[in-house]
């Protein structure tokens, strides 16, 4: 098939970007969207032009590297897939396709369609873990039974791939779905309860410091999440956060966590 691509080009973080038109031909419907871009890039290289920079790695929907905003939707049309799992059979001959990077203050553009998502790593550093050192003498794994329903919900939250589609989908660029998925995973498991309060408070602090916006319950994040992370997690985060904030004064002091500068 024949298509017209309108792609965001931006030479560097400080450069001014713009949409540029690229006609492509001979696209097979079995190609993935990124394979279509590979074809275009090889053509650009042979024509002496700069290929289009975009993030990608596993190309099977699990690493979370790919990140395109296609026709106004993170990861393009279709639900529960990442851009690398988007195949050209979803498009028709003659389509005009718009391709942009994630747009959020906390995700500055590095080049073309590549953005910096290190804010997510810093949020994780603020509390997205259970404080257990490597140790060959821990209790036997089956000494900590976890009700199946809790384990399943924790898994559903833990399946987040950290791609940032939730932020890109949100009109306020909120990272609540991402943060709530991590907080929920640990809040639902006995292993994570000991630090639940500090975790909720510290991760939310860091999220604010990174300049993500507030959640206004629009729900676009859930619709666009390639891993179907539920809004229920945001409700759980709110409960965890509120409970932690209220009990902060009476309970043991929360360790001082200074959000890192982005």
């Amino acid at each position: 098939m024949k298509l017209t691509l309108k792609i965001w080009r931006q030479a560097g973080p400080k450069a001014k970007g713009q949409m540029v038109d690229y006609p492509v031909d001979g696209i097979s419907e079995d190609m993935s969207f990124l394979e279509m871009l590979d074809v275009l890039n090889d053509k650009l290289i042979l024509e002496g032009q700069e290929p289009i920079a975009f993030d990608h790695d596993c190309r099977e929907g699990i690493c979370g590297a790919c990140s395109l905003f296609i026709d106004g939707r993170p990861h393009g049309p279709g639900r529960h897939i990442t851009t690398c799992q988007l195949h050209m059979r979803r498009f028709k001959d003659g389509d005009v396709i718009h391709v942009e990077p994630w747009r959020a203050k906390a995700f500055p553009v590095i080049k073309d369609l590549v953005v910096d998502r290190s804010a997510f790593d810093r949020i994780q550093q603020a509390g997205g873990f259970v404080s257990v050192n490597t140790n060959g003498n821990l209790v036997d794994a089956n000494a900590i039974p976890v009700p199946k329903a809790d384990a399943d919900k924790a898994f559903d939250a833990a399946t987040c791939i950290g791609c940032g589609a939730c932020v890109a989908a949100c009109p306020n660029s909120s990272a609540m779905l991402f943060v709530s998925a991590k907080v929920s995973q640990f809040a639902l498991l006995p292993q994570g309860r000991a630090e639940a309060k500090e975790r909720a408070l510290n991760m939310v602090d860091q999220m604010d410091a990174e300049k993500f916006g507030n959640c206004s319950n629009i729900g676009a994040c859930e619709i666009e999440c390639p891993k179907d992370i539920s809004l229920e997690n945001i409700a759980r985060l709110n409960r965890e956060y509120l409970g932690a904030a209220v009990s902060k004064e009476e309970g043991p002091p929360v360790p001082f966590h200074k959000p890192k500068q982005a």
Partner: peptide, 10 residues
């Protein structure tokens, strides 16, 4: 044992 302590949801 290590992974379960870390909160890996097996």
């Amino acid at each position: 044992d290590q992974c379960v302590s870390q909160g890996v949801p097996f």
